[in-house]
Design a protein around this nucleic acid. Structure first.
Length: 268
DNA sequence: AATGGCCTGGTG
DNA sequence: CACCAGGCCATT
């Protein structure tokens, strides 16, 4: 699932290829996958590729742009092989002949065409909380004090902290030794700080490994990441706890309607 | 604060 | 054939 490390991986790859390219054609194959009118960006040049939490921000000339959210199964790829896939929803053809494909089996994701990108970007940043590197432990602790929702649910709340998804929330809580079901306001300042540091660590690891391709995630070249080979608890139901000296086994419960994995022996 | 729905492929 | 995957938003 594309969370912050996956989206950042794609951003870096796209940046190196599409900056400077001029949009020649936008072919919409599934209307539901695009918000706004693709025609509006024809003739515009790509100025930069940015990211806000899990969303990609493509800045175009004349203040225009695109915001892309991959949600669960979305991909933004440069590989020509995607031209004939039945799940390719929008095709961007550049003047040079290069193409970029928005691919999404489940059609949860979208590409949004924006007239004034700066305006849209500040709206987005206002709605989203800080990314894990943009906040201190004490500030996170203060936010946690305001709710008794389960810890993992709060980590997934993009208004509290942005960019964290189910995989890194589970693995981060494991690394911090915190039970995902704990009411957020029951954490001590020290625990909140540990959770933050742990999230930063697992997400950095995810980025180093090119993201997690447990399911359908692929990078801009259509390649898999490798973080799934290093999951700490995510998807490891019944397997041995990875903490040294711990004899526990990973169990799966549902928290906030989502699959939640942890070791009941060492996450308290 | 908790729940349902959006979608569709993959699995049991 | 029923059910699961989960980011995000709307509804209750």
């Amino acid at each position: 699932m594309p969370e912050l490390p996956e989206v950042e991986t794609v951003r870096r790859q796209l940046e190196g290829v599409i900056v400077g390219e001029e949009v020649a054609k936008v072919e919409v194959r599934a209307g539901i996958s695009i918000i706004g009118n693709g025609e509006e960006i024809v003739g515009k040049r790509v100025e930069s590729v940015g990211r806000v939490a899990k969303q990609l921000i493509v800045r175009l000339s004349d203040r225009a742009g695109m915001v892309v959210h991959l949600k669960m199964t979305g991909r933004l790829v440069l590989d020509e092989g995607y031209a004939k896939s039945p799940y390719t929803r929008v095709v961007f053809v550049f003047k040079s002949g290069k193409a970029m494909y928005f691919w999404d089996t489940r059609k949860f994701g979208w590409v949004k065409i924006i007239k004034n990108l700066s305006e849209e970007e500040s709206r987005l940043k206002k709605a989203l909380g800080p990314e894990p590197w943009e906040i201190e432990g004490e500030e996170l602790w203060q936010k946690l004090q305001r709710t008794k929702r389960a810890m993992k649910t709060v980590l997934l709340d993009q208004a509290v902290l942005s960019g964290v998804g189910n995989i890194y929330a589970n693995d981060g809580l494991f690394l911090a030794g915190v039970d995902p079901r704990r009411p957020a306001n029951s954490l001590s300042m020290d625990e909140a700080d540990k959770v933050l540091k742990a999230l930063q660590k697992v997400m950095e690891r995810g980025l180093e490994l090119g993201g997690a391709s447990d399911n359908t995630y692929r990078d801009a070249y259509g390649r898999m990441g490798k973080y799934q080979e290093h999951f700490l608890v995510y998807g490891r139901t019944g397997e041995k706890c990875k903490r040294r000296g711990c004899i526990g086994k990973v169990i799966r419960v549902t928290v906030g309607g989502r699959g939640t994995f942890f070791c009941p022996e060492c996450q308290k």
